[in-house]
Design a binder for these strands. Structure first.
Lengths: 338, 338
DNA sequence: ATGAAAGCGCTAACAA
DNA sequence: TTGTTAGCGCTTTCAT
């Protein structure tokens, strides 16, 4: 059985309040401080955060619900986030819901029972019903990367429309007119935004959009492979393809390799995320890069601020929109130079 | 304020014990069961796991301490592990210690205070001092991927020596004699084992080892880039290189691209882990693949068994050693066919 | 099958 | 500054 404050009290002959005061930064006479520290040492005492949490109604723990841990975009965000949270004494319980609405709902309920002090969620279910009950507790929720309908809470987004528009325009500047896009599922917010950007770029230049150049994948590697194969098969006129998340980018590169297509001579490409992967491609891939670390840090700061840590708390909900950047590689051919 | 069992008791006119019994699978009269369920619904009651944890001295939570979340080997293991644990009602608190001994120690102390029911650790500090205090609590510890000196506890390892030996032998069978190796830090167990395998293969064939062909990296991408550059510069005779973890493999591929080396014509290569990345390389990379999902699942089962869930508990500590496999690509040239 | 009451380890209000 | 005490929400005897 682990030692308790009572044990320390008995050992030192002091009262419980003194010991508690010692642990919570109160004033304790030097002599007693010594005694307490000796007792802690000998008894191997460690504070019981469970008991403390019950009493204070605060667990110093943040719940994080994401669609896939095993996804660089998510894991990089978490890394940045955890760093900030931990440095403020907060732990994180991470729940990977496998892009499954039911698991997501279960995860939130689970975290509710665990009495986490707040939830950070990259939502699968954009209706937000899975968060309703937690929201009623009055504890803060911060949403990452996707908008949610029926819930007003802080969120950190990426300017996906502009990201896509910029990428497609860049291809157009290089003389491309028949540009394929491998985009995410229709019902996912980021996918919708990226597709909007694709349309916007076309509209701006007066280039008509060809439906056959749009492929809806599912944000996983195999979808990228499949998407590339289909686009190539159906569109002999296509000179470039824009792939809109990392997993599908990897998939598209796999597709290009396996079909023996020469990049960028036969096909130009702009991918998404993961600079290191882009460097490992030959030729080096041009990509749209999202500020994952910054997202993580911002999200952490936001929830901390709602918890009364750090920056003062704003009253109304805050939505932050971060910008992406294009990292130049050699995967886009300039057709103007022909 | 969230509803409590007391609220339900008041609402239903029943005693606390009955409500508790309801939640813990006891016998409750049908009529009362109905009443309780109604009250739960109306009050939006959710069990308070903090209070339950204090009372039962079990938090149904496992702490996981790993060197880098943002590392595919780790994140895949965690994914497999979490699946199993969650399906048995256990949560996981993941601590990414950034390959830092001090952070690792802090993480374990933190988890101790949180009163997790067990710890799973891929240790940075192989002396194991960071685990001593937790070990005294009598709660189970399971070690992943590395051996620890002064602590007897269950562990799941990979047969790294054989993995490396097989890979190097495969290169030798293809006629390679001057084989470079990009290996991990000297002090890391897995790196030592993989280097042992490299030596063993040479000894078996009577081929002398050239010190200049051994590069010690640090298991991160940049180390792979640097390692490849150095090996190539120092060893014009080198025809093949074996890279011993995923991050450095990616780095080595980056190096090959950036130096404009043709693979496998000028240089053959065997990488490590991440089949999808291997497929995305051109030509497809031949790799040693570790059974990450299986490691995660085994680890989870082991700690559950120590916690009295599932399989019966064995008395003495168990060490499991899993085998790797070579996934064939086209990055190794057969020099015999010349 | 149900109720009353003690107590898990801690914090905090109050008294000394 | 320090000690006493109540109580956070739950489980678990022990009665009934």
């Amino acid at each position: 059985m682990a030692a308790t404050m009572k044990d320390i009290a008995r050992r030192t002959g002091l009262g419980l309040a003194t010991i508690s005061s010692y642990f919570n930064g109160g004033n304790v006479r030097e002599k007693n401080r010594k005694k307490i520290e000796e007792a802690i040492e000998e008894l191997h005492y460690e504070v019981n955060e469970v008991a403390r949490g019950l009493k204070t109604n605060a667990t110093k723990t943040i719940g994080v619900v994401i669609p896939e841990l095993n996804n660089v975009f998510c894991s990089e965000i978490i890394t940045g986030m955890e760093d900030v949270l931990r440095s403020h004494g907060y732990a994180t319980i991470i729940c990977d819901c496998r892009t499954d609405r039911n698991l997501e709902k279960e995860a939130v309920e689970f975290l509710t029972r665990k009495r986490v002090d707040g939830i950070i969620n990259m939502p699968v279910d954009v209706s937000g019903t899975h968060l309703k009950a937690f929201d009623r507790t009055g504890k803060p929720i911060v949403i990452i990367d996707r908008k949610i309908q029926g819930l007003s809470c802080d969120s950190v987004l990426v300017d996906n429309e502009r990201a896509a528009e910029d990428a497609v325009e860049f291809l157009m500047e290089n003389g491309h007119r028949n540009i394929g896009i491998i985009v995410g599922p229709q019902e996912i917010f980021t996918a919708q935004e990226r597709l909007k950007g694709y349309y916007a770029a076309h509209e701006k230049r007066g280039i008509p959009v060809q439906e056959s150049l749009i492929y809806h994948g599912d944000y996983i590697i195999q979808g990228g492979v499949k998407g590339l194969e289909e686009l190539v098969k159906k569109n002999p006129q296509m000179t470039a393809v824009f792939v809109t998340n990392y997993e599908m980018t990897m998939g598209a590169v796999i597709g290009i390799n396996e079909l023996g297509i020469h990049m960028p001579k036969e096909l130009s490409m702009i991918g998404f995320d993961n600079l290191q992967f882009a460097r490992a491609c030959s030729p080096k891939l041009t990509i749209v890069s999202q500020p994952t670390e910054a997202i993580g840090e911002k999200v952490a700061q936001m929830i901390l601020s709602r918890l009364g840590v750090g920056e003062e708390t704003e009253e109304k909900t805050v939505t932050l929109k971060l910008q992406t950047e294009i990292i130049m590689g050699k995967s886009v051919r300039n057709l103007n130079k022909m």
